[in-house]
């Protein structure tokens, strides 16, 4: 193997630590004891020989590992800790020792390769996030060694967590309808899918309410879009205020259409709830001169209650019910499936 002569000129970028020659002393060069500086460094510094035996162990690493210098020196690095060292770290160390090439272990990809902690003796015992570099160096006795430098990257991890919470805000924005502040269609679709799967599994019923504002187009044409938007907001609020269980949601389904999903209600109770929704909007008493014969904003509701099967979706069935409610004169709910007496009356 061709070794590079020790006299090879060093490029200024080489991060190779050289212990200064003992003599002759340059003016000022002996002003500091290198050992003092080494122990005062605010980063972990450790040197191992080509067998992985610890030759240097500074105060920083002693403090964060809770292993004193005297206990660490001449021990194998992977055995000095009571907890395991990550395999990636050991592989990187082995590579550096074999090929004499420097290695970077980033926080992003490795988090906490070594069992180092920020607060020893406290309840909180989570490993410090680290970023590590391993550089080959030569001792003055021409031994091949590795310099391991460790920095605490917890502060940047905290920044990441802040960024993550920002992304949660973004996520909320992605699931909320900007006009009404209730759930949007995208969120509803995802929620509905889960609610159906859950109801199927537990063999519970699911009630789907399709809600549509009556004569909304004429309202918009007569009162203007701004007023129309405001009605949508008020109706959304009125519907939302009727919900009390965590399992129930209301979402804006389309322009002036809303949808509610509520699990595990007997059909009769669901019908009472539909009536409550209709009244909640009626009680807003929003004038609507183009709505005959009510002269105010009303809603029609299509309700379907049942255990989801593999056939036609509950949403489609609720839509059919809504269509019937519109046909029958609006400002009402139609509940499906019809009970026997109602079916009889229908015929």
């Amino acid at each position: 193997m061709n070794k590079i002569p020790a006299t090879a000129p060093e490029s200024p970028k080489m991060p190779i630590l050289r212990v200064p020659p003992p003599a002759p002393a340059q003016p000022g060069s002996n002003r500091f004891d290198m050992e003092d500086i080494f122990h005062a460094l605010n980063l972990g510094v450790c040197v191992v020989d080509d067998c992985g035996k610890i030759l240097l162990w500074n105060n920083w690493i002693a403090k964060h590992s809770n292993i004193k210098e005297a206990e660490a020196l001449n021990q194998q690095l992977e055995k000095v800790f009571t907890e395991p060292v990550s395999p990636a770290f050991l592989a990187a160390l082995k590579n550096t020792l074999t090929y004499r090439l420097p290695v970077v272990l980033s926080t992003a990809l490795h988090r906490a390769p070594l069992p180092l902690y920020n607060a020893h003796g406290t309840q909180q015992q989570t490993r410090m996030y680290q970023s590590i570099t391993i550089t080959p160096i030569q001792s003055q006795l021409s031994e091949s060694c590795c310099l391991i430098q460790i920095t605490d990257s917890s502060p940047s991890i905290k920044r990441e967590k802040i960024l993550r919470s920002h992304s949660e805000i973004l996520k909320k924005e992605a699931t909320t309808d900007s006009l009404t502040d209730i759930c949007n269609r995208r969120f509803f679709d995802a929620h509905y899918e889960m609610a159906v799967a859950d109801a199927k599994r537990r063999k519970h019923s699911l009630s789907v309410f399709m809600v549509d504002i009556d004569f909304f187009k004429s309202y918009n044409d007569y009162y203007g879009h701004m007023a129309g938007d405001n009605v949508i907001k008020l109706v959304a609020n009125a519907l939302k205020s009727q919900l009390s269980r965590a399992t129930d949601i209301v979402a804006r389904y389309g322009g002036e259409e809303f949808v509610l999903v509520m699990p595990h209600l007997p059909q009769q109770v669901a019908e009472q709830f539909a009536e409550k929704l209709r009244n909640a909007v009626l009680n807003l008493e929003i004038p609507h001169l183009k709505s005959r014969p009510f002269n105010q904003i009303t809603i029609s509701i299509g309700l379907y209650t049942g255990i989801p099967g593999n056939g036609d979706s509950l949403l489609n069935k609720a839509d059919v019910a809504l269509y019937q409610a519109k046909l029958k004169g609006r400002n009402r709910y139609i509940s499906l499936p019809l009970c026997e007496t109602e079916e009889y009356l229908e015929q």
């Binding site: 590079i4 970028k13 004499r100 090439l101 420097p102």
Partner: peptide, 11 residues
């Protein structure tokens, strides 16, 4: 090629 290379840390 049976030789040894030394390298700086990456930038």
């Amino acid at each position: 090629f049976s030789f040894t290379l030394e390298s700086s840390l990456p930038d």
